[in-house]
Design a binder for these strands. Structure first.
Lengths: 195, 195
DNA sequence: TCATTCGCACAACAACTGTTATGACTAACC
DNA sequence: GGTTAGTCATAACAGTTGTTGTGCGAATGA
């Protein structure tokens, strides 16, 4: 009982990472407790010990994935001159790790669209992301770097552009190598620049 | 045996439409032969009679969905002055019907990402769509309506923008009503215009 | 050292999956 | 009108699913 709470959370994190690996390889259609347990080198008994239900396991895995992604995103200070560009670049699957995250995320759209609760969570996430972008856009406008216009609309447009680029890059990594993704994003940003 | 082939295909089409309805409501996670049969007002015996396997049923349903979508898309002549705009508008979920199609399409990304064969099919579809857009872009450039630049890159950018807008609109129909979707697209096209 | 709690493997459960086999009913043909 | 081929409901199949219980070993605390 003196066991620290850290062990408990560490096991839940390990299980979540196993979920990521299964989702990355087989999607939600192949996400079974047994598959996760095998990936973890354990049995379903471990999973049910740490999570009351499969839904909770998946929810925790996705929450953790979002946390990790957000943590990586804030690696650059917000007052950087190219903060908007960096924020958008962080969404793209430019590394293998980011590609995995994006694949899981895109896959989760299927169960999310079918479940009102999950759908709402996704909607909230994207709304928050757009709010962040909107602030960056407004700041850039004040610095005279960006064209005029409703910052919320520009943020929604930029979010659209990056999201769609993620999808295309996931399905056609050959046609959309990191270099081209960055080039396309920069071309898009150039059209928004006031220079 | 004198029975016309039309009846056969008609039954397969009805089954496919039942698949659409199930996918629209419950996604791929809820897509079972029994659910489709119930939606069809029949039993699984009918489905197995017309399709050797579930995979074939789903493939046929998605093929038919693509056909129907493409058929609707070509409603405007290609030499129209705003052909590019129309082509992009046709992707957006501006009607309930288009929203259903898009929901199914986005949901299909989960199984597609996990299956190399399906993934390849999706890649090919998007590549073809981009080729069409590229030709429209090149034509518009020759007419002096669009900025200079590699038509393929501009097409990829436009495809990205529209795809991402679809995703956001599906999750937040309130925040992205048809009017705003069109406005955002027009704002994007305005940045590409040479005027 | 003994008692107790925790961690988790193991096995079993009922529910559900895609698929198959069987046969009743109907329509078409000679 | 008897035969045949197509249509599909019914029922059963083996396999897989999430979940639940049982129990054993190890770590913990008295």
């Amino acid at each position: 009982m003196t066991r620290t709470k850290g062990d408990h959370e560490a096991r839940r994190r390990d299980a979540s990472e196993a979920v990521w690996r299964v989702l990355d390889a087989h999607g939600f259609g192949g996400l079974t407790l047994r598959a996760v347990a095998a990936e973890l080198g354990a049995t379903t008994g471990l999973l049910t010990h740490y999570f009351p239900t499969k839904r909770d396991l998946v929810a925790h895995a996705l929450d953790l994935l979002e946390q990790r992604t957000n943590g990586r995103t804030r690696r650059v200070a917000d007052d950087d001159r190219s903060a908007l560009r960096v924020a958008l670049l962080d969404v793209l699957p430019l590394t293998a790790e980011a590609a995995t995250s994006n694949r899981i995320w895109v896959s989760s759209w299927d169960p999310a669209l079918a479940d009102p609760g999950l759908s709402h969570d996704h909607a909230r996430r994207y709304a928050r992301s757009r709010d962040t972008l909107r602030d960056l856009v407004a700041a850039a406008q004040q610095r005279g770097e960006l064209v005029a216009g409703d910052p919320a609309d520009i943020a929604a447009g930029a979010q659209s552009f990056v999201l769609g680029l993620v999808v295309q890059a996931l399905f056609e990594p050959r046609a959309f190598p990191p270099r081209r993704q960055v080039a396309l994003l920069d071309a898009y940003l150039a059209t928004l620049s006031s220079a």
